[in-house]
């Protein structure tokens, strides 16, 4: 019995700090009805110095098209190891993409910025379509995109 309690206490002690350091964040992007095929999107984060910090999501599974997500591609070289487990289908025109991720607390109010690069078949590539600082205050606020994304927001 004591062993079970000890194990439970240990598990709780190990889990709680992890839960306190991360929170579920929902990223939502609604695409414009741009009249083309599904768009490839790269959602990634830059640090306070503007350097690439990591990827959050890539919509579109064929790596041969990743070079059209030009800023993201420049930063990553299209390395698919960067996006294993955070990749899904491309997003059709007029559709809304919602992703819920467990993000580190340290990303918020610390000068980090979330970016989205977009590309669609036979249409112009759109790097840095969205660039939004990650702040607690900015949560829930809708930001318009430049070419393919009607609006983007994140909720904590």
């Amino acid at each position: 019995m004591r062993t079970i309690f000890a194990a439970l206490a240990l598990a709780t002690a190990l889990t709680l700090p992890g839960m306190a350091m991360a929170r579920p964040v929902t990223l939502a992007a609604t695409l414009k009805s741009y009249g083309g095929n599904g768009a490839y999107l790269a959602i990634y984060v830059t640090d306070p110095k503007g350097a690439y910090a990591g990827s959050l999501w890539v919509a579109g599974t064929k790596s041969k098209y990743y070079e059209h997500l030009s800023d993201w591609y420049r930063a990553t070289g299209g390395n698919t190891a960067e996006i294993n487990g955070i990749t899904g289908a491309s997003v059709g025109a007029g559709r809304r993409l919602e992703i819920t991720l467990d993000l580190a607390d340290a990303l918020f109010d610390a000068g980090y910025t979330v970016h989205i690069d977009a590309a669609a078949e036979d249409m112009r590539d759109s790097p840095n379509e969205i660039a939004v600082p990650l702040t607690a205050q900015g949560a829930g606020q809708s930001v318009p995109g430049r070419r393919y994304i009607a609006n983007f927001s994140y909720d904590l």
């Binding site: 929170r23 790596s63 289908a89 997003v91 059709g92």
Partner: peptide, 30 residues
Amino acid sequence: NASGPAPAGSVAPPNNGLFGTGAMPKVQVN
């Protein structure tokens, strides 16, 4: 595909310091 990335849900997110607990992402397209 063979050269493409592992789709969401098949492996844990990368350990790039952005993800907290390694929980699988939830995605929805409407």
